[in-house]
């Protein structure tokens, strides 16, 4: 037999993959369905907002709002029920997270595990800024900088030399 699935991977995982495909993709379904929508447009709007932040567990980076999967449908209905029961948005989200863990949050929560993740844009930007500043300082120190204060005459001459080629 060929390596359809990796040999070191137990066969049930392969079967799990198959069943996930069969159960969650094959069923004719539709992301947000008129039957499940709430009649109150404000509540429905909030439900949509919440659904867009929750991950469909069996899909790739799709929210339950976008997903056709069966479980996503159940979760959407659940969210609406929680809202009808008077939950706030956060309470409804917490209700789902309590059952499925942080994995369902498309927006990773800020906690010690994700400090590095959330800090990374700032750290990278600061590092980049330092590198750029360092580059210009080094350049200045090495004295490889062109004189900046030209007279108008000189600037015009420079324009003539430099700008015709565009770009």
């Amino acid at each position: 037999m060929m390596r359809f699935f990796r040999p070191n991977r137990p066969i049930w995982l392969a079967m799990l993959a198959v069943v996930l495909t069969l159960t969650f993709y094959a069923r004719p379904a539709f992301a947000v369905n008129p039957d499940e929508m709430l009649s109150d447009p404000v509540l429905e709007g909030r439900a949509r907002e919440i659904s867009q932040e929750l991950r469909c567990l069996v899909c790739q980076n799709q929210s339950i709002d976008d997903s056709d999967a069966d479980l996503a449908h159940d979760l959407r209905v659940l969210v609406r029920e929680r809202l009808l029961a008077g939950d706030s948005n956060q309470q409804a989200i917490d209700y789902i997270v309590a059952r499925y863990g942080d994995y369902v949050l498309l927006n990773p929560p800020l906690k010690p595990d994700t400090y590095i993740l959330w800090a990374s844009p700032f750290i990278l930007l600061i590092l980049a800024a330092l590198a750029v500043v360092g580059f210009y300082r080094r350049k200045k120190r090495d004295g490889r900088i062109a004189p900046a204060n030209l007279t108008d005459q000189e600037r015009k001459r420079l324009d003539e030399i430099l700008s015709p080629s565009g770009d």
Binding site: R55, N61, D102, L105, L106, P108, P109, D113, S120
Partner: peptide
């Protein structure tokens, strides 16, 4: 923990 880094993170970051 097992987390998801989804579109909201990328957009904000």
């Amino acid at each position: 923990t097992i987390i998801t880094v989804g579109p909201p993170f990328f957009v904000q970051a």
